[in-house]
Design a binder for these strands. Structure first.
Lengths: 144, 144
DNA sequence: TTTATATTGGATATTATTGTCCACTATTTA
DNA sequence: TAAATAGTGGACAATAATATCCAATATAAA
């Protein structure tokens, strides 16, 4: 569904959000351990999220990654997916055609449209804050 | 969503099915041209579909690929996807966790379950025959 | 202002996927 | 039985995705 980079990105964001709700900045190492991901690779992903203004990053001692508590409910899963995987999830043809659309549809265009629209709606309505709160309560998990 | 191999596999099956409905066997070259895919790579994919008994293949002159007209409505998209991509579409965790399930769910487990179940249902109820008939009518396209 | 710490950015390595090449086998027809 | 045709299987090549390494930069605190 998503690239591995995007999966790490979502998991990392949820962890950073959860820690930010507790007023804690986290280091790259913290993130990589929390979501069980290769840290150097995770670093690249966090850079992209930072450049897309989804997370904050601060250098130096006392530095680390964080998210603004006040803006947390504005961050939807769709923003993260878009920042890392672009819009292929929404616009890419299910059968890989370059110019597949309602006028010149691939054989599964309509069937996929239903699924895709559902997915889009879900990503656009799910906030990182909600996911972070569930994670904080121990209801969900970010590794294994 | 699916691997490129799987996309080619689905497109190839629809083309072979359509031609079989017209009682025509098709060559590898025919398939590759019809779906605009690299023919040597397509060959490998057709081999897998053949081994999974989704398509027939005959060697020698007058040989080629075909599907049994009488069994065409029994062939669902799900069989093709399973033959090429396995069950990751259904069972893989949306965030890449190895042991994600209802008991120990990832943060988006439930949200994804809804989408995934829809997708599964769609793949299991869509027959290649229907898709081939729409394609035959010129309603859908397999390349570009 | 020096030191320690943490992210950044670029180069590089590894792995999986996608794609190619070619000799071989099976089969039909002449 | 020879020749032509079409798929098969194995090795190999190219590309993209994933992952690593390390020097550079920024910054806080001593």
């Amino acid at each position: 569904m998503f690239s591995k980079a995007c999966e790490y990105g979502i998991r990392a964001s949820i962890f950073i959000a959860e820690q930010s709700l507790l007023d804690r900045k986290v280091s790259l190492k913290d993130v990589a351990e929390a979501i069980e991901s290769p840290s150097a690779y995770t670093s690249k992903i966090l850079q992209r999220l930072s450049k897309s203004n989804i997370i904050n990053s601060d250098k130096g001692p006392t530095g680390g990654f964080s998210m603004d508590k006040s803006e947390l409910e504005k961050v939807k899963l769709s923003s993260i997916v878009y920042a890392i995987d672009g819009d292929t999830v929404y616009n890419g043809c299910g059968l890989g055609l370059k110019r597949c659309n309602a006028d010149k549809p691939c054989p599964v265009h309509n069937q996929f449209k239903v699924i895709r629209d559902e997915l889009k709606k879900m990503l656009e309505t799910t906030t990182v804050k909600t996911l972070a709160m569930d994670f904080e309560k121990g209801l969900t998990f970010l590794k294994r």
